[in-house]
């Protein structure tokens, strides 16, 4: 397999800016933004098969912006990103997805959501049995299968 070409420094800068616009830091929920260095490191390190699509998205973003996102004022940056989301197609959707999939596995974020910091296996989860008497009306109503000749 041919190794994917890594993102350029300029692409990584724009990735960081747009990540922070998507999910900013929050004191209220005690969570970092998606532009956090650890989360950005996770995104870049695990791009894998998505690298080409994400690079295409960032190239499209750069074309819309005309210069690095960091150099735009806030209003212009918002306008560029709005256009990017409207016109970016599958590459833009892929970029959003890789940001979200790395953000929502970060320890600090999961902790804030009240989720355990672990893989599902081998501990699993406990499921309440629930109220089986809810089925009583269904049983009482009954019914029959349509007859087949």
């Amino acid at each position: 397999m041919i190794a994917e070409k890594p993102l350029t420094a300029a692409q990584r800068d724009d990735l960081r800016i747009i990540s922070g616009m998507m999910i900013p830091e929050s004191d209220e929920y005690a969570v970092p933004g998606a532009d956090d260095a650890v989360i950005q490191g996770d995104i870049v390190a695990t791009l894998g098969r998505d690298t080409r699509m994400v690079a295409a998205a960032l190239d499209h973003l750069a074309k819309l912006a005309g210069k690095p996102l960091a150099e735009l004022d806030e209003a212009w940056r918002e306008a560029v990103v709005t256009e990017f989301r409207a016109s970016g197609g599958v590459p833009a959707a892929t970029l959003a997805r890789v940001i979200l999939q790395c953000y929502y596995r970060d320890d600090r974020v999961l902790r804030s959501l009240g989720l355990e910091l672990r893989a599902p296996f081998p501990k699993g989860h406990v499921l309440p049995e629930g109220d089986w008497s809810l089925l009583d009306p269904v049983k009482a109503r009954g019914g029959s299968l349509r007859r087949a000749p």
Partner: peptide, 22 residues
Amino acid sequence: GPVFEAVVGEQKGILPWGKDHH
């Protein structure tokens, strides 16, 4: 799961970008 919820919510337009995201 949380990642699926976030990805699909963003695609469907019910999970906003910005400060209201959380």
